[in-house]
Design a protein around this nucleic acid. Structure first.
Lengths: 136, 136
DNA sequence: TTTATTGTAACACATTTTATTACATTAATA
DNA sequence: TATTAATGTAATAAAATGTGTTACAATAAA
């Protein structure tokens, strides 16, 4: 991950969990993160698809959590936004005539997947609720 | 990590561990990975700085492992090439007037660091020797 | 009807990653 | 000594990814 998507998503969720306003607008959220509201709406769409937030259109529209903060674990956030593996990419055109080049991607798959899984497992023990509690 | 540096570095090390040639040229290594030899030489420089390989200039120059494959663990490879954290970047200009925006990067630091550390620990139990053995 | 919002497309700009060219330096060897 | 084949590294180009912005249709409250 060489982007701000996890940080942005968790920031959004933290605001929603902490806010007394039920429906938070993308503009208000964007003001806390200091990014463009469109970026927030895009990420809200992703978090909505993952079942973590709900959004409402129209005047008085906005976003709210779709579950209790104690039921939102960090692995769900991570899986919603991740678009690369922890150990990165493979080289795709490795030499099929070389014994190593021929099979390395298959071996890397196993390694990369196990490391990714370890991160997910670690994140699954951390809830949004306990993260938000750190701010008080 | 949204790049091929770990895959490239491990590919290089696997070739060096497996090769009967003592000094492998960057061009020969590049032929197995199917990348430009300059990319290989750059990564060899990084692996050399990490104490994992040795290189030699001049005709009959090339690269070789600096230690036994059983003494090279994956965490050393990862730390040599990593240039981003597992959970990505933070948003740098968060709103200091917002209770969440004000402190979130400090909280993210803790989380990001602990996840990175978990990955390193996991990789530290995997040796180059056992990775190479998978090819036989 | 007006107003404030989401959802999304389209495009612009910035950053990161990878490939390539060029060449000085090094060291073996004919 | 001259030739050859390698590393080391700078510079630049090209491709891929990430972020910001504008625009506007659709929605729903007042």
């Amino acid at each position: 991950m060489n982007n701000t998507r996890f940080a942005t998503a968790l920031h959004i969720l933290t605001l929603l969990a902490d806010s007394k306003e039920v429906w938070c607008s993308s503009e208000w959220i964007a003001g806390s993160i200091n990014v463009n509201p469109v970026v927030v709406r895009r990420e809200l769409g992703v978090l909505g698809a993952a079942g973590l937030v709900q959004t409402r259109k129209g005047k008085t529209g906005g976003a709210t959590l779709a579950k209790r903060a104690s039921d939102i674990t960090m692995d769900k956030v991570y899986l919603a936004v991740k678009n690369s593996e922890v150990l990165g990419k493979r080289n795709h055109k490795t030499n099929a005539k070389c014994p190593i080049g021929k099979d390395i991607n298959e071996k890397l798959d196993t390694l990369f997947t196990s490391i990714d899984q370890r991160v997910v497992t670690e994140l699954s023990s951390k809830t949004l609720e306990s993260f938000v509690a750190e701010f008080h």
